[in-house]
Amino acid sequence: MDRRSFLQMIGATAAGVAGSLTAPGVSHARSKAESGEFYGILVDTTRCIGCRNCEVACAEVNGLPLPDISDKSLFASERQTTETQWTVVNRYETEKGKIYVPKRCMHCNQAACVAACLVKAMKKRKAGHVTWDTNCLGCRLCMVSCPFDIPKFEYNSALPEIQKCTLCWERFQEDKIPGCVEACPTEALIFGTRRQLLEEARRRIYQNPGVYNSHIYGEQEAGGTSHLYLSSVPFDQLGFRTDIGNTAYSEYSKGFLYAVPFVFVLWPVIMLGMSRAIKGEEKEISEGQA
């Protein structure tokens, strides 16, 4: 029996016991997506226990090889996501002891990979999911551009693809929450609209003085991301880049792109003018000599 059907069963039993207990589910998700609000995940690292159930769920949901979560020695080194593991949990030694941090695509509001892609293979969906499509050329500029080094390329394939977390875009269309969120036993991951998540994050910070670092990682970083993090320690102790800046990465190439139409219009005109002027000059000289 898989977890989902089990939970449904438990739900039914519980409903029988408690009378009219209904599980709200996420049936509202699609209608909300049309409102144009971004969805995302809030990761509360104070709650993460490093069980790596999210890694297993991610693999199950996306048809990736299942990781062996009984191997605790993996925590000895910081792992990066790979083309076959879209989410990884790392452990960090901090001033407040061991803290576990799940890492995956941040789903930036104005994603660098999306801005970099020349065929819109990387796409920011209306509900915030950054997904990849097969019309990609495999140029890997998305990997060069991503401030979080998330897109991974299948180098060892003749028909390679870019692999990364999709925020469970397909499940979202079926009104389901992401696999990792569903699997998390302590609700260190919660799923909702970015606005709700920020509210909840601020509520936790405010209601638990001294527990949280007041910074919500992802609220401003790289112009804001759909993936948000709460932590009890400064984020540089958890392997986060704190020099990402608050500017959306797509802004960095904007200056150049704005210059393009000017060059395109002005250059030919100037050069044509120069060419004519010099030609005229030459004629005058030759006429003068004649």
Partner: peptide, 9 residues
């Protein structure tokens, strides 16, 4: 097959 008109590339 999609014009990524906002992309430098």
């Amino acid at each position: 097959n999609k014009f990524g008109v906002n992309a430098v590339l």
